[in-house]
Amino acid sequence: MNIIEIKDLVKIYDSAEIKVTAVDHIDLTFEKGEFSAVVGPSGSGKTTFLNLLGGLDRPTAGTVIIDGTDLWSLKPRQIIDFRLHNIGFVFQSYNLLPVLTALENVEFIMHLQGRPKAERTKRAVELLQAVGLGDRLHSRPGKLSGGQQQRVAVARALASKPKFILADEPTANLDSHATENLLNIMEKLNREEQITFIFSTHDARVVKKARRVITLEDGKVLSDERR
């Protein structure tokens, strides 16, 4: 079952001096439970593609349909709300709120969704335990290692019960041990709970774990390999 349908997606950055086609007529579909990697060299359009998919950047042309909803037909305010309830994000530099503890960071997104305190605390604890941080619930990001912060970010992305998670270079700032640890956790969540992950990466270890590898070059799909 397709949860994402991308049709003829184009993104052109048109400044006064230069015109750059970052995403060039991409047609793709993603099914529920996929563990996909979008790869390619720097400037190939990976991040732009993920931004278009996540409703962060408006395409020049084309459509992104998520679970039957044409994302870019929504009003800006509706797109933010759609992201809150349907899309999880994991960023390269973690982007946790430094003033909140790990538990509060995970709870925060559920607070935005308007869920009751008891429910969000219970779920946040469960998720942090699932990513191996049951003993660091009350630590602030500054007291956690990069790998631990990224695991909190994964727990936060999962907390909103999204339809899929977009992870932009999630292992770029991690050492090999932390990368291995994080990938194992995400793979387990994907396998056991059918969480859909879409990564952009040029980390060979991530590519190795992915069950689908989409290669971009100059904004075009060069290959789409399923394993």
Binding site: G54, I80, F82, I87, F91
Partner: peptide, 10 residues
């Protein structure tokens, strides 16, 4: 930017 991305309203 992160807060807007994860769905915190303006």
């Amino acid at each position: 930017g992160m807060l807007l991305a994860i769905g915190m309203s303006r």
